[in-house]
Design a protein around this nucleic acid. Structure first.
Lengths: 330, 330
DNA sequence: TTGAAAGCGGTACCAT
DNA sequence: ATGGTACCGCTTTCAA
């Protein structure tokens, strides 16, 4: 009698209209055969009585759900939130909900919990920001018959559907920009070398340097660590005048080192980052030139792709453009 | 036969052990009376067979769910992600999932969709970052018998459980810090005045100014807008030497204006922000002194509070401390 | 201590 | 075109 969940069932509506539950179900779902007149009366009465379908009951019998599992490494970084925001938008518009799980702790226990929650709720599909260590989990999910869409990164061993961006091309556009600024001593700062996207960025750097002496380092992506490392690079090559970094934080760290050495930005030192996270544009002094990873768009496209997959349609991998936005750091 | 959702049911396990479904259910849930020996065998067999409970079936019969609705204004800001990360952590540890909804579009349609999704899935409880315009929705949720915990902000008209922070006290600690730095011409920059938290921050400013002439503005919280406005304030009061802002972005905007006027930071101009979002610490030149809103902790405590509520325990509103972190902007 | 059976709210198949 | 009915997987009440 409590109004929890409306407590109005199909049976109730049927009783009110002298119809069977089945008729009401068909009426509301636009399925089956039904006199248009009846259908109309059903819909009217349902809204009047405040009917709300029970997702659990429906899911139980259809063996389907309207849940999209969303698996990302971290929840508390704006980068991932932006992707999620895109997914959530499309999901919501289509009556789907996200089941969010972060994979920050790569323990066996956490992975099992994630898989378990997806299975318990019978997730219809999964959107995954993949990392090497998640490969096994991805296979497990697929083996349950659940379609997986990879976003932003891509595990070629796993294959399948994906929404990614052209890291090589993006890196080249960043490099061309620096080269056209007259820089010749350009260093690359990356995060790790065993990740496809990062490798592509480095390849873009390498290619555009066309045989000029390379200078590159891999470093933990904190302002402080990168700053210290950039000082080392200055010591090594006093003519270093630009950095292309595989992340925004790294680019900012390099800029800090340059500022500490009293170099003028951007004439004596320039930096280009990668991602366009919150930090990039919101610098007091040197808003960062960077590659704009289309985070929200990636989420949107991935959700749309997954919905197509769920309809049984086939889809092709999608490669989005990542433009360069030029600000004051270059 | 497909391994989707394991497809192993209680009945299957019962068959394998020559037990009834009920016995198995009781065995796995540690409920009912059962021989300890039997219980052990049940659990063993269940794990061996890869049993995964069907959340829909359980929810259907118990009329409960293990979903926590999480309602926030925006998904694509790090501030809210940090709160969500805290909630998700506790939820996951307790077998709950978040149902995330953002209320960015304050249309009737979006609100109905949000309510509908909560009802369809029979959300056990809701964590809400409240804004004035969400009051009606909050009442609606409560009227369905669903407990609501407010986080970060607080609608006194609505009352009930909450995890917030002492904005007045925090503002005072920021002001004391500025005053102890010798500043006397201190301005306040706020966002809007019809929000309890913001009002408290202003009150803290006002109180600490102890009758000194106040200078305060309300402004859209973008770096550019605040920067322009700060220039106006400098024109009005050339002795202005510090700003206490109700947000980090605003503080950064003020700093930019000061830098543009060639003021030395922090000796000639100081700024203190509010929140400690990603941007604050990650500035190339002037990492921001700011009040640290305990975002993740707020999420954690709110989730724990909601779980207590769901157990039928009573809880008291929680007021967290928000420390000042001193960086280079002051 | 355990089994049998009913029923949660839907959907789908089989009649009529 | 519509109604009756079985059943999805689980919990719970009643019997044994």
């Amino acid at each position: 009698m409590s109004s929890r969940n409306g407590n109005v069932t199909l049976k109730d509506i049927g009783k009110a209209l002298n119809l069977s539950a089945r008729a009401v179900s068909n009426g509301l779902n636009n399925s089956g055969r039904l006199a248009p007149e009846t259908r109309k009366r059903i819909i009217e009465t349902a809204t009047r009585m405040g009917y709300v379908p029970n997702a659990a009951a429906r899911s139980l019998v259809t063996r389907k759900s309207r849940f999209i599992g969303v698996l990302i490494p971290y929840l508390n970084k704006s980068f991932f939130c932006n992707i999620i925001a895109g997914i959530g938008e499309v999901a919501g518009q289509n009556g789907f909900m996200m089941l969010l799980d972060s994979l920050d702790k790569p323990t066996r226990e956490q992975k099992e919990r994630v898989i378990s929650s997806l299975m318990q709720h019978n997730a219809a599909g999964v959107i995954l920001y993949p990392r090497k260590e998640d490969l096994e989990m991805a296979y497990l999910i697929r083996s349950m018959g659940v379609p997986v869409v990879q976003v932003m990164e891509y595990m070629p061993e796993f294959g399948g559907s994906s929404v990614t961006m052209d890291n090589f091309k993006a890196a080249c556009s960043a490099m061309k920009h620096l080269l056209s600024g007259g820089h010749t001593h350009i260093a690359y700062i990356g995060h790790n070398a065993d990740n496809a996207a990062q490798q592509e960025r480095f390849k873009g750097y390498e290619r555009c340097m066309k045989g000029r002496p390379l200078q590159f380092r891999y470093c933990r992506m904190t302002l402080e660590a990168v700053c210290a490392m950039t000082h080392e690079m200055f010591d090594e090559d006093p003519d270093l005048s630009a950095v292309f970094a595989a992340s925004d934080t790294a680019a900012l760290g390099a800029l800090r080192a340059a500022v500490e050495r009293n170099k003028l930005i951007p004439s004596q030192f320039a930096a280009v980052g990668f991602s366009d996270v919150e930090l990039a544009a919101n610098q007091i002094l040197y808003p960062l030139t960077t590659i704009v990873q289309p985070k929200e768009e990636t989420g949107i496209k991935a959700a749309q792709m997954l919905l197509e997959l769920l309809k049984g349609n086939s889809v092709s991998p999608l490669l989005l453009d990542a433009p360069l936005v030029i600000r004051k750091s270059s």
